[in-house]
Design a protein around this nucleic acid. Structure first.
Lengths: 139, 139
DNA sequence: AAATGTATTTTGAATTTCAAACAATAATAA
DNA sequence: TTATTATTGTTTGAAATTCAAAATACATTT
């Protein structure tokens, strides 16, 4: 097995591990996966309109409408309009939504801490450099 | 921002990038995401029973039944029984399923190649070591 | 043989999604 | 200005995906 093949398999394992960790974290909350992802996007990038949110989530605006409806009902997010363009809905997190985002973010931090615990100081720096390069140039 | 916080954010970006790359690859095929994941698991780990497949996919066996039903209908996988335990269904890929797996795997290889292209030889080795450690110890 | 355990399927409900049609508003062209 | 075109977001209807719980069919243990 070449290093490229090996890396391919390990990346897939890593991705699947991350995905199932994430979904078990979400399942232990009041939120569905799509709701949690929307909160994550809003918490990370701040208030935005439906189209941008849909793009960040990689789904259609129709799907996003439904998700935001549920977030509004559950009081995690709210819509507000602007004067510049009355078609636009700005979606922002409520207090409750911000708290949920922060809690979710703490889970991510704790996963990174776990990684630090099994890596050397130097490796953490290497990983950060490598992932940054890949994120900038590929994704 | 501490390195741990920065790494947390970059890992999330990486994960989301990988997820949306994966889902666009799948969408360009005849398969749904859940079907593709099942094929991936079967191709990677070989023939297995429903319970193991469900565990690999991180879903219930009920969900897996539905997924395998569709894979059977579309002729990507087949069920067969064993003499040892007649409750058990062994799920394996058909020729068509193996081809689909190999094609999907080639996509993964090409993504890894892209990563190699933007990293140095040394960094590839570092990444491999680091990801292996994390996979073994955390996921 | 009866009770218990295990692997899988079925069922019913909720969630998630999309494409397409629609409504409201904005921007552009005539 | 007025008509046309483009954009933003919602609604609708259908399909896919999922889960928990009940049901089924075997196996194992007592």
């Amino acid at each position: 097995m070449t290093p490229i093949e090996e890396l391919t398999d390990e990346l897939l394992l890593f991705f699947n591990g991350f995905a199932s960790w994430e979904s078990s974290v979400i399942r232990s909350s009041d939120l569905s996966v799509s709701e949690a992802h929307a909160i994550e996007a809003l918490g990370q990038h701040g208030t935005m309109n439906m189209k941008s949110l849909a793009a960040k989530l990689g789904v259609t605006t129709g799907t996003t409408t439904v998700t935001v409806d549920r977030l509004e009902t559950k009081n995690y997010a709210r819509r507000s309009s602007t004067n510049e363009d009355r078609r636009v809905n700005l979606i922002s997190l409520t207090e409750k939504g911000i708290k949920a985002f922060e809690e979710h973010h703490r889970f991510h931090l704790s996963l990174t801490e776990q990684m630090r615990a099994c890596l050397q100081e130097e490796e953490i720096q290497q990983l950060l450099n490598i992932i940054k390069k890949v994120n900038r140039e590929i994704f």
